[in-house]
Amino acid sequence: MGDIGCYCRVSTQDQSLDRQLESTQEYAEGKFDADLGRLRFYRDKSTGTNTERADYQQMMADAESGDIDAVVVHSISRICRSISDLERTASQLEDAGVELHIISEGLTLRPDESDPYQTALFQLLGVFAELEANMAQQRTKEGIAARQQNDDYHHGPAPLGFEKNDGLLVEGENYHEVVGVLDMVQKNELSKRKAAQRLNTSRATVNRALDRASLYGI
């Protein structure tokens, strides 16, 4: 076994990759008896709904050129959130003779083995990953629609991360940053005080945003 690719992804610049880096490194070292020198880390801070990500593209290029023999990811949603992209990724890795190991779901896809159960589970998990992404987008749309029906919306300021455009609530320039920070707070990865500092706002504003989680799809 040659080098091992450890792929880690979060959606926004403010989210931390540390947990995934630790998880994939620990798995690769234990599974392949690989020292740190054989591990290649690929890091993206971008949406998983498409594959236009710099380190993802580099990883796939390294797989195709034979520079890595296996790819390790923490969970299936980290590599892709679209079933078509997942299937394309798995197919390209298989053609390149590269194994795919997905830690959380306990899945291993090997190019020299045909396991109908593993393949079916991979496809099913891909469907759920895409569904989760679509549901988050839908929750955001529904939250905005509900907010616009509220009389307070028409008279009060726009919520954190939003702007008003001709009377309509639209995502502001820092919307995705706000979503990432609020998500970290909900997962107890960041305190409300630090969240307020990062977003240059007050803890009270952060609390109000968390009370309106549906606006942010979280």
Rank of each mutant, 00 (worst) to 15 (best):
V206S: 02
R193K: 10
D152P: 04
L131K: 06
A28K: 00
Q118M: 12
S11H: 15
S202E: 10
S75A: 14
D95G: 13
L182A: 14
S202M: 08
A120C: 10
G2W: 12
M184K: 14
G2S: 09
E94N: 13
L107Q: 06
Q138K: 12
R81A: 05
M135C: 14
E87R: 15
S202K: 08
S16W: 12
R208W: 03
R147V: 01
Q148F: 02
T12A: 00
L39S: 00
S23Q: 15
Y7A: 11
A146F: 08
R208C: 01
L21A: 09
L160D: 00
Q197N: 06
V127M: 14
T108E: 15
L36T: 07
L109Y: 10
A133I: 05
S75T: 11
P111C: 12
T47C: 08
I103K: 04
A146G: 13
M59I: 05
D62Y: 00
E87H: 13
D33I: 10
Q123I: 15
A63P: 03
L17C: 05
R110H: 10
R212D: 02
G106C: 13
N165A: 03
V179A: 06
Y56L: 09
A54K: 10
E94P: 13
A90S: 14
M135E: 13
V72M: 10
S23K: 13
Y42L: 03
Q15M: 09
L168T: 04
V98A: 11
D62N: 01
D69R: 09
G30I: 06
M60Y: 07
S82V: 08
A129G: 08
G97Y: 08
Q118P: 09
L124H: 15
A90C: 14
A136C: 07
Q13C: 02
E87Q: 14
L121R: 11
D18E: 13
H155V: 06
M135N: 14
Y56M: 08
N207T: 03
C80L: 05
R88C: 07
A195G: 06
E105F: 12
N134Q: 13
S191T: 08
E105G: 13
G66I: 03
A145H: 01
V127R: 14
M1H: 11
Y27N: 08
E173A: 01
T24W: 01
L17W: 05
E105W: 14
L107D: 04
N134L: 11
Q148N: 03
R139A: 03
T140G: 11
I76F: 14
Q92V: 06
V170Q: 05
D3Y: 08
N174P: 06
N150V: 05
V98T: 14
T201H: 02
I4H: 00
Y117V: 12
T24S: 01
F32C: 04
M184H: 15
T205H: 01
Q149R: 11
G66D: 05
L121I: 11
S11T: 15
I103G: 02
S191E: 07
R19A: 10
E26P: 07
I103W: 05
E163H: 09
G143T: 05
I103A: 04
